[in-house]
Amino acid sequence: MLRKIRERLKSISQKDKNASLSDVNKKPVSKSITEKLFGRKTAKKETAKPKEEILGTQETIVRKTKFYTGQITKAVRMMPQELPIGYGVNRIIIQVRDPRWIHSYWEVTSDTWNRLRDELCDEFYKAKRVLRVYDVSYIVFDGSNANSFFDVEINDYSNNWYVDTQGPGKSWCVDLGLLLPGGRFITIVRSNTVTTPIEGPCWITDEEWMIPEEMFARLYGIGFGLGRSSPIGKAWQERIKRQLFSGALASPSSPMQKPKERKFWLVVNTELIVYGATEPDAAVFVQDKPIQLRPDGTFTLRFALPNGKQVIPVKAISADKEEERKITPIVNKETK
């Protein structure tokens, strides 16, 4: 919808532009014609003018300076319409999507690629681009002490990747790099560290706040809406259970529900328009209710028209209350 509006605006403004352009184009043309036809006369007028100054010209020039802050010499900068493709940095950022998946995006400058190409020569073209995903849980990662790592091969054109870590509750760091045919790995850029959340309740308990396993299970269930006091039916509970055990906690953040896709359909409604006119200062009653007249004495009423008979007395009384006119349309509507 917005696009439509914008396009319309655009076409309007273009029209305006075209119009003003053609105006500009026209002027000199018409001028030259007038000059041709009445050359002498216009020339005379123009030379005569400067001699007498139009009243207030000077004052206007002076007053204008009050609002003059300096010549704008800079050309008006056009706003770019698109975001930059890159920011000229080497960077990889990772983010947690859920307990198992992390998302990584990166940027590597062409300078860096060129340097690697120069250094590695032939090997560069044989190397695979990979994300090396390090498990860095509970350590200060120095590049060589990861608990474990695995590689994800990526293609040359992507600039982001979703990685299935298979490991909830762990910390991760990712290197974007080149894996050479000989097995050597060259890090191009290293990411931040993130920690995925655990997928279920924690196995660590607090001595001071101990709770028997069975009781926690009950609390856990109630917390997730499996309580026995729930009146909202088995179906929902079952669904929650399924979601609970499939690891997906559905909690709609938008309650919007789209209407069902209908097949072929037809809707027919009827409305009745009652309109007329009288003296503008008359009082008019439709079905004994006063109505408002337009300034010219006309009126229009619009009614939803149900089945059956409608008797619609329209009564007008003159301003001096001397005269009265009454017309009563009767409408029968049936639907078959």
Partner: peptide, 11 residues
């Protein structure tokens, strides 16, 4: 509920 350590009273 998935906090560390386990919350005694749930939510």
């Amino acid at each position: 509920l998935h906090g560390t350590p386990r919350p005694k009273y749930g939510v």
